[in-house]
């Protein structure tokens, strides 16, 4: 699957308009230099050969060299990976804690005013452009109140992480909240819940012990999908907060047609995605024993 992604990316990049050698030059370029750069970048060889070379290098854990930065892609990505990982994990944490919390409260008070307000907020979260939310948060908490830095990675301090994580997490909080609420309501209507309630357990206990567990299946799916979203969807947040992560790198590399970096970054995303899905599948097994057969089949 990971290789499938790389073939697709490679093909698209090869088909994409724009010449990496030309993109590496400024406002003017002369034919000799362009030709020399193409030779240096090995762009003069047939496409299948280029891809095969890339694969052969990959087998030796070598991702090639960046056209733009003229140094190993591995270095280029590895130095940005910690920033991206911190942001993605923090954003996931934000979306899970707030999403499940808001969803649960809304479900308990289903169809109340509180429910409507919370779900309205969830929709707001989903439909607010990341760019705008980030700027507004920065305006309020940094420019006006001066509590947090406007942007930057700093020395990796937590205060630099707060706004980007909330911004990126907000997008997903809404989705998780809606999914939690609807799954909970779904489960609540099922028979075993009536039994639990008949035993005289309180609504919160019923929800917490029985419903939440059963309702988590779709929620976990959404979170798993979300992790990939957060990674790939990070460029805008990274841009607003000048966060030195892989998302911004990928955008810049696509713009520069820096093929080795694009391939490397996509490969990393694909691996993270596979890992995330593996975790989701494992989580299914823990949450819902009935699914063991299904997953095993």
């Amino acid at each position: 699957m990971v290789l499938g992604v790389t073939v697709l990316v490679f093909a698209l990049n090869a088909a994409a308009l724009g010449d990496p050698a030309r993109a590496a030059m400024g406002q003017r370029a002369d034919p000799e230099t362009l030709e020399r750069l193409r030779r240096e970048y090995a762009l003069d060889r047939p496409l299948p050969v280029q891809y095969a070379t890339w694969l052969a290098r990959l087998a030796r854990a070598d991702l090639g060299e960046s056209f733009r930065e003229q140094r190993p892609v591995r270095e280029v990505i590895v130095e940005r990976l910690p920033a991206t990982a911190r942001l993605a994990l923090a954003a996931t944490l934000v979306s899970v804690v707030f999403g499940v919390g808001i969803g649960a409260i809304a479900a308990v008070r289903a169809r109340s005013t509180l429910d409507h307000v919370l779900m309205g907020l969830a929709v707001l979260g989903i439909s607010t452009p990341v760019f705008w939310l980030g700027l507004m948060l920065a305006l309020v908490f940094s420019v006006t109140l001066g509590w947090l830095p406007v942007s930057g990675y700093g020395d990796g301090a937590l205060r630099n992480l707060v706004l980007p994580a909330v911004t990126l997490g907000a997008l997903h909080t809404g989705t998780v909240a809606r999914m939690t609420r609807s799954s909970l309501l779904e489960v609540v209507r099922q028979d075993f819940m009536a039994t639990a309630r008949a035993k005289g357990l309180s609504e919160w206990t019923v929800l917490g012990k029985h419903a939440l567990r059963n309702a988590l299946v779709p929620v976990v799916t959404v979170i798993g999908i979300g992790l990939a979203d957060l990674l790939v969807g990070a460029p805008l947040t990274e841009t607003v907060f000048a966060w030195p992560g892989v998302g911004r790198l990928l955008v810049a590399a696509v713009g520069q047609r820096d093929l080795p970096v694009v391939m490397g970054a996509v490969l990393v995303f694909a691996l993270v995605y596979v890992l995330g899905n593996l975790l989701v599948d494992l989580a299914y097994l823990v949450i819902d024993p009935r699914m063991r057969d299904a997953v095993r089949a």
Partner: peptide, 23 residues
């Protein structure tokens, strides 16, 4: 697997790719 490939595919790259194909 197909779903995974599509999901793991950065939309940005697809967008650029499509500009390339359609101009």
């Amino acid at each position: 697997r197909v779903t995974d490939v599509v999901m793991a595919f950065p939309s940005l790259v697809l967008a650029i790719g499509l500009i390339a194909v359609f101009e």
